[in-house]
Nucleic acid binder design. Structure first.
Lengths: 213, 213
DNA sequence: TAGATTGTTAATCGATTAACAATC
DNA sequence: TAGATTGTTAATCGATTAACAATC
């Protein structure tokens, strides 16, 4: 993958969608696709798709289109899905358990190597082929295993202290389900927020707004 | 709340963030705040905050700023959080259980009235003060209880058939955790997608991109 | 009144769409 | 070659930021 200008988040957020759809096409045995076909299937413009892809290189052939399997691999590489970044998860409550088990970490560029909680009834629990550990042993664990990404499935109140500890241990990448504002506090960290409550409120707005018509 | 022009999604997606922060301020006993203060706390520009709020009305006072509790209430109303829309959840797997229990539906404009699954070992399970029902009884349930929103915590493969059934039963609002593309199939539906895998891939890209420097 | 801060208009910036020359 | 479709430049559209008059 060649050196590139900074690509905008709007583009980056569309890449997984392209990737998923191309996997789907590959499974169906489709070998070739044009930007126009892609655009109607995904509800975008052909122009946008070509612009997006050309942020990373010219993957198509004029007059022919794109080779599905090739484009799929290219996007997989761009996304860095072969990274297998060692990752630790915090919080073995309902959400933590869902994230720990539900996600197939092996296929998304991450590898779950540890789960932590601070509640006695959760420590020792089996989850996603791992034993839930006591947060007390975090520092030792990190020095040994060198995780690079942390998932926050803890309440907001617990997140602040935890974040500081992890930041001091050198972790800079976070998948954050808590409402603690990591990126405000640590501007050099890479933070991907999933705020389920916000998502739900947004939906609530749209429903209310619709029915007000 | 007065009649308004169509507000862009960019604005709408910031509203929950404002709302959460104002709740926080209210709890701390702060009574008054200016757009400038808000902007530094939230990492936005003061201009943007004023523009956003003025999509819905002039909630401030020149020379003074905004009254925290009043603005908080206004945004709560705009979001429609008092709606209490009756909602049904599909899928009592890990994610479904997390969503069903973890979210405090009562406070976000929705009210969970039913949980459905099709697997015998889940049907009858207790979850979020509800018994998991057999999908077979869905039609009857809907005709009686008139849910308006459906949450999809089912695999992609199950989503298509389910969506069609629900659409035919008149449901037009979806909180979709599956990778089935609801909005492509039903353009008049209001769909809020939460694609956890996409979120994770986006994070993967950013980490790879960062370390490539 | 003087100072502060909003509401709102104008300027800028960035993202999307359109157009078309290059080329397979 | 003729037809198709890309890669890329130019035009448009929308969102963010800046500026400032209104006014508390």
């Amino acid at each position: 993958m060649s050196r590139r200008e900074k690509v905008s988040m709007s583009v980056i957020r569309r890449l997984p969608r392209y990737y998923r759809f191309l996997i789907h096409l590959k499974e169906k045995g489709v070998t070739r696709i044009s930007s126009t076909e892609l655009s109607t299937k995904l509800g975008l413009t052909a122009s946008q798709i070509r612009q997006d892809l050309n942020c990373f290189g010219g993957f198509g052939q004029q007059g022919y289109g794109y080779i599905v399997s090739q484009l799929c691999d290219e996007i997989g590489n761009i996304l860095g899905l072969s990274g297998k970044y060692p990752t630790i998860l915090f919080g073995a409550g309902n959400l933590g358990r869902a994230i720990g088990t539900h996600m197939s970490f092996e296929s998304e560029g991450f590898r779950l190597i540890g789960i932590f909680d601070n509640s006695p009834e959760r420590i020792g629990m089996e989850l996603a082929n791992l034993k839930v550990r006591d947060v007390a042993g975090l520092e030792e664990f990190c020095k040994k295993e060198k995780p690079v990404m942390a998932i926050f499935c803890v309440p907001r109140t617990a997140a602040g202290e935890l974040a500081e500890q992890l930041y001091n241990l050198g972790i800079r990448n976070f998948w954050n389900f808590s409402h603690y504002d990591l990126s405000m506090r640590y501007p050099d960290a890479i933070v991907e927020n999933v705020h389920l409550n916000d998502s739900l409120m947004t939906l609530c707005y749209r429903i209310s707004d619709q029915s007000a018509k």
